[in-house]
Amino acid sequence: MTRHTRLLWIWLAMDRHSRRIVGCFMGARDEVSAFGLWESLPTRYLDARCHTEGLAAYKSVVFGGLNVIGGTQHIERFNATLRLRVAHLVRRSLPFSRKQAHLELLIWMFIHRYNASLW
Rank of each mutant, 00 (worst) to 15 (best):
H112C: 08
R85W: 07
S60H: 15
F96C: 06
N79D: 06
L12N: 00
A34D: 00
R20F: 05
S60D: 15
G71L: 05
N79Q: 06
A57H: 06
A57W: 09
A116N: 09
R83N: 03
R6S: 08
P42K: 01
L103H: 05
E76Q: 01
M1G: 11
Y45N: 03
M109F: 14
R44P: 04
L94I: 15
F96L: 07
R113I: 06
G64S: 00
S33N: 03
L8C: 11
N67L: 07
T5A: 13
G23I: 01
L41F: 04
R85S: 12
W119G: 12
H112P: 09
F25L: 02
G64H: 00
L7V: 15
M109T: 15
N115A: 00
L103M: 07
R92G: 03
L103V: 10
A13V: 04
V22G: 01
G70F: 02
L66E: 09
T52S: 04
R77S: 12
R77Y: 08
G27W: 01
L8S: 09
K99S: 10
S117P: 02
R19G: 07
V61I: 03
H17W: 11
F63C: 09
T81Q: 09
L84D: 15
A101D: 13
R44W: 04
R77M: 08
S18L: 06
L12E: 00
G64L: 03
P42Y: 00
V61S: 03
V32I: 09
M1L: 10
S93G: 14
E104D: 12
T5S: 14
D47T: 07
S97I: 11
T5E: 14
L66T: 12
L8G: 06
L41A: 03
R85K: 12
V90F: 15
L89P: 01
S117G: 07
H51C: 13
G71M: 04
V90G: 13
P95Y: 02
Y114V: 06
W108S: 10
I10W: 08
L118P: 03
F110I: 09
M14A: 04
Q73R: 14
Q73L: 11
A13I: 01
W11R: 02
I21F: 00
T81P: 05
L103T: 07
V32Y: 10
L46V: 02
L82V: 01
T2C: 11
A28G: 07
E104W: 05
R77V: 06
R85P: 10
K59V: 09
T52N: 03
A57I: 06
C50M: 11
T52G: 04
H102V: 13
G70N: 04
M1P: 12
R29G: 05
E53G: 11
R98L: 12
M26N: 05
W9S: 10
L94P: 15
V62P: 00
V68D: 00
F25D: 03
F96K: 03
K99V: 11
T43I: 13
F63H: 15
E53N: 13
L37Y: 05
C50G: 07
I107F: 03
R6K: 11
W11M: 03
H4E: 12
L7S: 13
F110H: 10
L12A: 01
